[in-house]
Design a protein around this nucleic acid. Structure first.
Lengths: 205, 205
DNA sequence: TACTTTGGCTAATTTGAATTAGCCGATTTG
DNA sequence: CAAATCGGCTAATTCAAATTAGCCAAAGTA
């Protein structure tokens, strides 16, 4: 990774821990292993580093969204979630979602940064909502809708069903961001949540 | 309200909007209608203002917790939630909870401040978890547990049932904090959530 | 090979925000 | 009523952090 990327990488780490205003240009430089003035060979100023992070993340999430959509419906059908749609496949879906969001290097740092900066910056508020509210709802809504259409879950309101699936995951996620020690409890709770979700929505009406 | 309280009141507003580091002592003073140096007649320094806010909020929440516990079980029984436990009473419970957390003057500002500062400050992280994770779960868990014991809801895992009740409320709350325009949608979604919750857990097993 | 660009450095400089000094009128209190 | 004390003000002061100036060596390039 070249210096220019190392800078936004280290800056993201620091911003996610302390917030933009509490990170000094010198802190970033130190992490990168250079002196503060050298940073200015790569970025016009501190704000430009921040903007570069946003831009980079926008790219990443756009790619991710595209890759999910390209395969889209087919990928899900292909994934075998239909053939043997069981509690186990739902459990897998939830756990993967949770652990991906929680541990993915960029997701976790970027989410914390957005959490800290969201009230200061309309653009970040919108990104937060898109990434952690609207996109998951629409993607999981699509999945759960298909599973429902296939007769394996039952509801007349997929949106609420999706919130019932996702809100507890989101809730546990924010807890782990704040208190990583609770992760084992969160994982267990996740499993219990999904098993119960499956029982609640899985019965034949 | 005397100056000393006006200061922490305005400071809380500003901290909740921009975060501690982005608020200048002069901003607070201006809101209060005095000059920055005059602030120092009331507080030793900027950090002391922040600490005073924390202390004040600790008091408020302690009082609130006490008043909930004093009446405790009796209050619930008294509240008539039993006699005609209906979808309507659950709806009321959810809506009140939601609107109280969302609009209560101190709750809403303080929650935003905690959201911004949580990763910087272990004490605040703990407060956040207590106020918005642990206390609601234990209080609502108690209520729902009683309703379940009375045979009006059905589950063998009250903790998960409580998360199923509260996590969507929490989720909607964080959305409204970030995007107040979504409040009407959130309220409607709240109602749909609770009706569905009631149907899911209300059936006789 | 010589010229240019790149990316590092140290030593200023600038800026702006927190805090202190010290004055002063109003209010409280012995 | 006189002396504290309170709570405001203006004018410094301090200090830390962002940024700029300007030097230099190594790497790339005509």
């Amino acid at each position: 990774m070249d210096t220019k990327h190392r800078i936004i990488d280290e800056a993201l780490t620091l911003f996610s821990e302390k917030g933009y205003a509490n990170v000094f240009v010198g802190d970033i430089a130190e992490r990168v292993g250079i002196k503060a003035p050298s940073l200015y060979k790569h970025y016009k100023n501190k704000r430009a580093i921040f903007d570069a992070i946003i831009e980079e993340m926008n790219l990443r999430f756009a790619e991710q969204a595209k890759s999910l959509n390209i395969n889209g419906t087919d990928a899900v059908a292909d994934s075998g979630i239909y053939e043997n749609m069981s509690e186990e496949s739902l459990l897998r879906l939830g756990r993967e979602l949770f652990l991906y969001f929680l541990h993915d290097d960029y997701n976790s740092r970027f989410r914390k940064m957005l959490t800290i900066e969201q009230f200061n910056n309309k653009e970040l508020a919108d990104m937060y909502s898109k990434i952690y509210v609207d996109d998951p709802l629409s993607y999981q809504g699509m999945l759960l809708g298909m599973i429902t259409a296939a007769g394996m879950l039952h509801t007349d309101n997929v949106e609420i069903m999706t919130i019932h699936f996702y809100a507890p995951i989101y809730y546990l996620l924010t807890i782990c961001d704040r208190e990583p020690d609770r992760e084992p409890w969160a994982l267990k709770t996740m499993d219990d949540h999904i098993r119960q979700f499956n029982r609640l929505y899985g019965r034949t009406a």
